[in-house]
Each structure stands twice: as structure tokens, then as C-alpha cells.
Simulated assay, not measured.
Amino acid sequence: MIEERALLLLVKAGSEKAYYTLYKMWVSRLYRFVYQYLKSEDATDDIVQETFCRIWTNREKLDPDSSFKAYLFTIAYHFLIKELRRQLNNASMEEYVEYNENARISEEDAEKDIDFDQFCKALQRAKANLSPRQREIFELNKEYNLSVAEIAEHLSIKEQVVRNQLSIALKIIRTELQQYSFILLLFLYKF
């Protein structure tokens, strides 16, 4: 099978065949990633399609020496956030949230509610598992809202190093905070 870098060069040059091969390589992984947040086949299909359309329309900007996975998932992430915002602003979503709030009456359910203070303590414990550089990059990005470019400039390192360290940090944080998945989603992907 042709290597990804060569495929990216061909796609950049306008090869539809190479684009389709790249699509087949990544579509199922991207679909699973988006679906885990949306739980809707139609919405997931739309985001995956929009993501790959964006890849094709911006093919001249592809960098064969950078991580295609990071580029692909970043595009999908932005479409995902846009969809989540749309859903949160949807009247039926408001009704659903209100229904869930009203349904949580019993004492047993109240005990199961995730306390934000517990989440913050768990987040601090999870950050302790990061290397000092990973923790610094994570905090600058997620807590101080600095972009990858701003962090790279601030720390005098390359943007790709920031992306790599942030990716590793996010994997560790997500693994450590699985039980707080909804709060973590809101924390990591601020609206």
C-alpha cells in the first residue's frame, strides 16, 4: 500500500484516486470519533462528509510532512463543536435538559451526581501524571486559552512540538477522567 506522505503529495497535486484512497484509510476512524460525541448517524455522516470536503477543497494547503491525522481530526473537531453548539441552542435540547433536571428527584440519583469540585480535584490528580512540559502546554491551551501558535512563540518551540505534547496530554487526561466525560468535554472544548 502506498505510504501516507506520497498520498498527500498526490492529493495536493489534485489526484482524486489518491484522495479516495486517503478517504478509505481514515473514514471509519473519523466516523467513530465523531459518533462517540453525537450519537447520531445522520449528524456524524454530515460532519465526516464536510471534513473530507474541506480536505479536498483545501488540498493545496496539505503539508505532507505534518500529521495528517491531527489535521483531519482538527477539522472534524471544529465541525463537531459547531454541531454541539447548534444542538445546545435547539429548543428540543433545552426541553431535554429541563426534563432531565426535573427527573433527577430521588435521593439515590442525587448521590450519583458528579460534583464539579470532585472533577476539579480529579483534574489536578490527572495533571500530576503529565510531564512538566505537557502540563504547561495543557494549561496554557485549555486554561489560559492560548492557541498552539501562541504557546509555541511563548515557549520558543515549534508548533508541531506543541501539538504533539498537547495530544499526549489530552490522551492522559481523558483516560484519567473517563468517569467525568461530560464535564471534561465541556472543559476541553469550551463553547
Rank of each mutant, 00 (worst) to 15 (best):
K69V: 09
L84P: 03
K142N: 01
R104C: 12
K171P: 07
L88S: 13
K12V: 06
V162E: 03
V162L: 06
K61Y: 07
M93W: 14
S92N: 11
E159N: 12
Q165E: 13
A70V: 13
Q134H: 09
R86V: 14
E41I: 11
M1E: 12
F52T: 07
Y19L: 09
L186F: 10
I2T: 14
N89D: 11
N145F: 09
W26V: 02
V27G: 04
F182I: 13
L130S: 10
L38G: 05
S147L: 06
L130Q: 04
W56R: 10
E153F: 11
L22S: 06
R125E: 13
F52E: 06
N164M: 02
Q134M: 08
L30N: 08
Q87P: 04
N141P: 04
A76Q: 01
L88E: 14
V162W: 04
E107I: 09
F191E: 15
S40C: 04
L155G: 05
S147H: 05
K61F: 13
T175Y: 01
L166Q: 01
L88H: 09
L166P: 03
I2G: 04
E101L: 14
E159R: 11
I157F: 09
R85Q: 12
L146M: 15
E107W: 10
L184V: 01
S92H: 13
N164H: 05
L10Q: 15
K12W: 00
K61E: 12
N90Q: 12
E41R: 11
M93Y: 15
Y180S: 01
S92I: 11
F182G: 02
D117P: 00
V27W: 08
R174S: 06
L177E: 05
M25E: 14
F73T: 08
F79V: 01
N129P: 06
K158R: 15
Q124F: 10
V34Y: 01
K127L: 07
A70I: 07
E41Q: 13
I183W: 01
K121H: 13
R133H: 02
L170W: 05
K39A: 10
D113C: 05
N102M: 14
K82A: 11
L7P: 03
E136V: 03
F79L: 02
L38I: 13
C120T: 14
F187C: 00
T175L: 02
A122L: 09
H154R: 15
L166A: 04
A91R: 12
F182K: 11
